[in-house]
Design a protein around this nucleic acid. Structure first.
Lengths: 109, 109
DNA sequence: CATACACGTAAGCTTAGACTTACCGTAAGT
DNA sequence: ACTTACGGTAAGTCTAAGCTTACGTGTATG
């Protein structure tokens, strides 16, 4: 049996594992922002924000579009959805296990 | 505005960010297992598994119960649910943004 | 065009964390 | 009680990754 996670989830969880990246993710989710705007509201340098955005982008959590000299980053639903369904998989699995246990309990009280 | 994530989510995403830990998480989700059983099916040592389980436990993703000399680890729904609702927050936020944009588009075609 | 602006990337430093071996406590079996 | 099995913790190593400064590239603006 192969206990290998798909690359998308891998990058997604790893991306949101870092606090600074989670902050960037939340800021971008609230509304689309430029790199400089993000860096201005964060305690790290602008290049650091660029590097974090690269990770988030490769994880499918954000998208970027060019707007003149600057790049606007916005939330990408695909990555969020992927993580969501990954968790749902275990959520439902857990509920099924619970239900089965409850039914066994009902048969043998 | 404070862009601070709650500690539960922080640990949760960081925990699932590591591949070995995600594998352990998935194995435990499938069915409850002992530490040695987990280590037997993984390419790392038993102490490494213990350390990973500690992280997963502190993140609220797994629970352990004593069974004689061994400890059985099983999935903890609380942590999974927390991560799920965290993601749902941005999922719905994104949908709302989409809907608003679509309505603006409808008014000014 | 020339200057300034916005951003990505390279190079280097430094800390976090994933892993190992070694050790210790606890529970079961003989 | 002795021994064996199970698993958590300590100590130490090594790589990954987050951060900084410095530099290069493309775009707007005078």
């Amino acid at each position: 049996m192969a206990y290998v996670s798909l690359p998308h989830e891998a990058g997604g969880f790893a991306a949101l594992g870092d606090g600074t990246r989670r902050a960037i993710f939340e800021m971008v989710a609230e509304r689309a922002r430029s790199v400089g705007e993000l860096a201005g509201d964060l305690p790290v340098s602008r290049p650091a924000v660029s590097q974090h955005l690269k990770v988030l982008k490769e994880a499918g959590l954000v998208r970027d579009r060019a707007a003149g000299a600057r790049r606007i980053y916005e939330l990408d639903h695909d990555g969020v959805g992927a993580l969501r369904s990954y968790l749902d998989q275990f959520w439902n699995q857990a509920l099924a296990g619970f239900k089965a246990a409850a039914e066994r309990q009902e048969e043998h009280p």
